[in-house]
Simulated assay, not measured.
Amino acid sequence: MYDVLPPERRPRAQAAPDSIPSPAPRFAVQTGAAALAASLVIAGLLANDPRTPVLRGPDAALTGALTGPHGSLFTVAATVVQAGVGGPPGLVGPLLLVGYLLVYRRWWSALYSFLTCAAANVLLLPLKSAVDRPRPADPWILVSGGSFPSVHAYSAAALTVVLSAVIAGEAARRRWWLLGAGFTLIVMWTGVWVHSNWPSDAVAGALAGAGTALLLWKAFSSPLRREAEREAASRRR
Rank of each mutant, 00 (worst) to 15 (best):
W193P: 09
L207W: 07
S109D: 12
L115C: 02
R10F: 07
Q30N: 01
A33K: 10
R236V: 05
R9A: 10
L216Y: 11
L66F: 13
G211K: 04
A120T: 02
V166H: 13
A119F: 12
L96A: 04
G146V: 04
T160Q: 11
L36H: 01
R230P: 09
A47G: 08
A208D: 06
W198G: 12
D201K: 00
A16S: 09
P58N: 10
L111G: 09
G90I: 04
Q14D: 15
A33H: 07
L127Q: 11
L95R: 03
L45Y: 05
R26D: 14
G71M: 10
Y104A: 06
R173Q: 13
F148N: 00
R10I: 03
G191V: 04
A47E: 12
L95T: 04
A16D: 13
V122I: 02
A78V: 03
S200R: 01
I141F: 02
R12F: 08
S164W: 02
R135E: 03
V98W: 13
A165P: 08
P7R: 12
V41Y: 07
L185M: 03
G209F: 10
T79S: 07
G191F: 03
A130V: 12
A157M: 14
A202D: 09
V162M: 08
G71K: 12
A153Q: 01
R225D: 15
R237Q: 13
P149K: 00
H152R: 11
E8Y: 11
F114V: 11
R225P: 06
W108V: 05
A118D: 12
L125D: 14
P17C: 02
P139W: 04
V166G: 13
A210K: 01
L46N: 14
V4R: 15
A47F: 11
A168K: 03
V54T: 10
D132V: 00
V151A: 15
S222M: 10
R236W: 06
V161T: 05
G86E: 13
Y100P: 07
A110F: 06
L159R: 08
F148W: 01
A34L: 14
D201G: 03
A77I: 06
A233S: 13
I167W: 13
I141Y: 05
T52D: 15
G32S: 00
F220V: 02
A65T: 02
V92F: 03
P149S: 00
R105T: 07
M1P: 14
W108G: 04
W189N: 07
N197P: 03
Y154H: 00
P17V: 00
A228R: 09
N121V: 09
V41L: 14
L124Y: 02
A118E: 00
W193T: 04
G68Y: 05
H152T: 06
A210P: 00
R135A: 08
L216I: 05
Q30P: 00
G64I: 02
S234Y: 05
M188E: 09
A77T: 06
P50H: 01
A43Y: 08
W108E: 08
G211H: 03
A153P: 00
A47Q: 15
W140L: 09
A83T: 09
V80H: 15
A228E: 12
V151T: 08
A15N: 06
G191E: 04
